[in-house]
C-alpha cells in the first residue's frame, strides 16, 4: 500500500508544485489546471501510440502545458479578464482540444511500451523490479522540484515571488507585472501537464475525465503541506508541497482501507481541507514564507 501511495503522491506532487506557483506564490486561483492535467496526458498518450519513445512525450506534454498557461495569462493580462474567469475560459476550451488531440475520450496504452514498462525497466534486477515505477517517478519529480527551486532563486524567480506578495516591487524594478504573471502561469501549467503525462503513463490510459478535481487535489496538497510544516523554516515550500501530496493520497488510501464509502470522498476532502485551514489560523502567522 505504501508503494502505491508514494507513487500516486509523487505524481500528483508535480501537480502540487504547479499549484504552489499559482496559488501560493502568484495568489492566482488558476482553474486551467483541470484541463491542462488531461492535456499533458492526451499529448503523451497520443504520441506514445504513434510510436514516440515515452520519455520524449513528456517534453511535448510540458510544452503543451506552457501553451495552456500562456493562453490563460494572455486572457487575464491582455484582455483584462478576472483571474478566476480566465482560468475557467481556458479550462472550458481545452476540453474540446483535449478530445481532439486524443481523438476519442479514452486512449489505452496496454499494447506497447510505456515510461514504466519498457526494455529498460524490464532489465531491472529482480529485487529492484517492484520499485522500478517508484524510482522513475522519484527521478522525474525530483528533477521538476530542483529545477523549480533553482528558478525561484534566480532574478526572474524573485520577480515571480514579488508579483504575488507585493506587486509594486515589480513595477518599482521597472518590470512588467503582467509578463511575470504570464511566465508564472506557463511554468505552473507546464508542471501540471507533466504530472498528467506521468499519471497517464503509469495508469496506462488517457481518459477525458482525468482532470476532474485535479485543481482541488493539488490545492489540498499545497495547503496540507505548507500548513503542517510552516514552522520548519529550513524546509523549502516545494518539499512541503510534495509531502503534502503524499499525505493527501495517504489519507485517501486510509479512507478506502477503513471501508469508507468512496461517495463520501469529496466531502472528507472538503472537511480535511477546512480543518487544516482553521487550525493553521490559530498558529502565529509567519510574515514571509520561506520559498
Amino acid at each position: 500500500m505504501l508503494l502505491s501511495i508514494l507513487e500516486q503522491g509523487l505524481i500528483y506532487g508535480i501537480l502540487a508544485l504547479g499549484l504552489l506557483i499559482t496559488y501560493r506564490i502568484l495568489d492566482f486561483p488558476d482553474l486551467t489546471v483541470d484541463s491542462s492535467f488531461p492535456l499533458g496526458a492526451a499529448v503523451s498518450a497520443v504520441l506514445t501510440v504513434r510510436g514516440m519513445a515515452p520519455v520524449w512525450t513528456l517534453f511535448f506534454a510540458v510544452l503543451a502545458g506552457c501553451l495552456a498557461g500562456l493562453i490563460t495569462g494572455l486572457i487575464h493580462v491582455k484582455c483584462h479578464v478576472r483571474d478566476l474567469l480566465s482560468g475557467i475560459i481556458t479550462m472550458t476550451g481545452l476540453y474540446s482540444i483535449n478530445l481532439n488531440i486524443a481523438g476519442k475520450a479514452n486512449v489505452p496504452l496496454f499494447g506497447g511500451d510505456t515510461l514504466f514498462k519498457n526494455p529498460f525497466t524490464r532489465a531491472f534486477p529482480a529485487f529492484l523490479a517492484p520499485y522500478a515505477t517508484l524510482l522513475i517517478i522519484l527521478v522525474i519529480t525530483l528533477i521538476a522540484k530542483l529545477l523549480l527551486d533553482w528558478f525561484l532563486s534566480t532574478k526572474a524567480g524573485f520577480l515571480l515571488r514579488a508579483a504575488g506578495d507585493n506587486p509594486s516591487v515589480v513595477t518599482t524594478l521597472a518590470q512588467d507585472q503582467g509578463r511575470v504573471k504570464i511566465l508564472g502561469l506557463m511554468i505552473a501549467n507546464a508542471l501540471v501537464a507533466l504530472s498528467g503525462a506521468v499519471m497517464c503513463q503509469q495508469q496506462r490510459y488517457f481518459d477525458i475525465s482525468m482532470g476532474t478535481g485535479a485543481m482541488v487535489i493539488g490545492l489540498a496538497s499545497v495547503i496540507i503541506g505548507t500548513n503542517i510544516f510552516r514552522s520548519l523554516r529550513f524546509m523549502r515550500s516545494t518539499t512541503m508541497a510534495l509531502i503534502g501530496s503524499v499525505l493527501y493520497k495517504a489519507s485517501v488510501a486510509i479512507a478506502l482501507q477503513l471501508g469508507l464509502d468512496a461517495s463520501f470522498m469529496k466531502l472528507i476532502t472538503a472537511v480535511l481541507f477546512l480543518i487544516i485551514l482553521v487550525i493553521s489560523q490559530f498558529r502565529p502567522k509567519k510574515v514571509r514564507l520561506h520559498v
Partner: peptide, 13 residues
C-alpha cells in the same frame, strides 16, 4: 464515483 484517480487507488488497494 467517476473519478479515474480513485479508480486507480481502489485497484491498488
Amino acid at each position: 464515483n467517476a473519478d479515474t484517480g480513485i479508480a486507480a487507488q481502489i485497484a491498488d488497494k
